[in-house]
């Protein structure tokens, strides 16, 4: 570079990022009304996305909860078929491996039905008195064998020692017991395996459900991007003169671009946060009225709900930035003279 040129024309400094954040924050605050409109575009998109996700979660949870209750009810009716009313009877419980949800619910119901006593081997649950393997069955009208493990090191006959009625209901049909089979002891599974046909149908349903979810989520993402891009384009068009003026005053193109990108990521973040809350609450309340609040709130997998919320916020913010790339580039590339001429 020639020495004279260095003397007369210098290079514009790049403003620090912090300064750009300050200016765009002030811009958002000052143009609060306008920003609200842009934010509401994001809120709508993300709320739509989030309400779909939440709706899916709730539906699944309710379906699961219902299936669970059905299972437990069926188990209870089997128990009643064996002993009549549980009330006033001695019940023996043995568990191998962790209790399934249905096991736990069944146990709760049995304890709640006021039996004389519930003795348990390998079970720690409220209302259940721990007992040794050969003591657990003493005077009991029924033995319930629960838990996930497919194999037991204790012979069934040991557990049944001293039972008044030698009947065992087992939650695992295929459970294998140590020792020899005792023919005086009747062992019934709670229910048989699902048929292959049933499993096939369930798989098909799950696939259709997954496809529908993808489709809905995809559409709602598209709605979000279009909404945000549209809002940002409008806010750029509105500010042509301002952009032109800023360039006349020495703003670098890169600075204008940074300004818009920061603005849109902030708008995306705020909009997504609001959208996620709205989008999660609406279906929770709607399903709450449609079913029961305790069922909806009780069965909700909160971990998954918060994960979806986090995902939606990240997606919303990224989409807002994505949507802003075109308007921001457009704004930053404008020749100051033509930006100033516009009368918008």
């Amino acid at each position: 570079m020639g020495s004279r040129m260095e003397r007369t024309i210098g290079k514009q400094v790049k403003l620090p990022f912090r300064r750009a954040v300050q200016i765009s924050l002030r811009g958002i605050r000052i143009r609060f009304g306008r920003s609200l409109v842009t934010v509401s575009g994001v809120v709508l998109g993300i709320a739509f996305l989030m309400s779909n996700l939440t709706g899916q979660l709730i539906k699944k949870a309710i379906a699961h909860e219902r299936a669970q209750r059905d299972t437990v009810n069926m188990m209870l009716s089997l128990v009643r078929a064996e002993v009549g009313s549980v009330s006033g009877k001695k019940i023996a419980v043995a568990a191998f491996g962790a209790l399934t949800e249905a096991d736990r619910l069944l146990l709760e119901q049995v304890v709640a039905a006021e039996p004389e006593s519930v003795r348990g081997f390998g079970v720690g649950a409220p209302g259940v008195t721990p007992a040794a393997a050969d003591k657990v069955g003493e005077g009991a009208a029924l033995l319930l064998v629960l838990g996930e493990a497919g194999r037991s090191e204790i012979p069934l006959s040991t557990l049944a020692t001293g039972m008044r009625q030698r009947v065992a209901l087992d939650s695992q049909e295929g459970r294998v017991y140590a020792g020899t089979k005792d023919s005086s002891l009747r062992r019934e599974p709670f229910f048989g395996k699902e048929s292959d046909e049933q499993i096939q149908r369930m798989r098909q349903q799950a696939r259709a459900e997954r496809f529908r979810t993808f489709w809905i989520v995809g559409i709602s993402l598209l709605v979000t991007v279009l909404g945000v891009a549209n809002a940002l384009l409008m806010s750029v068009t509105e500010r042509f003169r301002e952009i032109g003026t800023m360039k006349c005053l020495g703003a670098l193109s890169a600075f204008i671009r940074t300004l818009f990108l920061i603005e849109s990521s902030l708008i995306g973040l705020i909009g997504s946060l609001v959208g996620v809350v709205v989008g999660a609450l609406l279906p929770l309340i709607a399903y709450g009225f449609a079913y029961r609040f305790d069922l909806v709130f009780g069965s909700m997998p909160y971990g998954l709900l918060f994960a979806s919320a986090g995902g939606a916020v990240v997606v919303g913010t990224l989409l807002a930035v994505l949507a802003a790339i075109y308007p921001a580039n457009f704004a930053s590339r404008m020749v100051p003279a033509s930006a100033l001429r516009s009368t918008v």
Partner: peptide, 8 residues
């Protein structure tokens, strides 16, 4: 950068 400096 120089143009921006000039305008500034």
């Amino acid at each position: 950068y120089e143009l921006a400096w000039l305008r500034c």
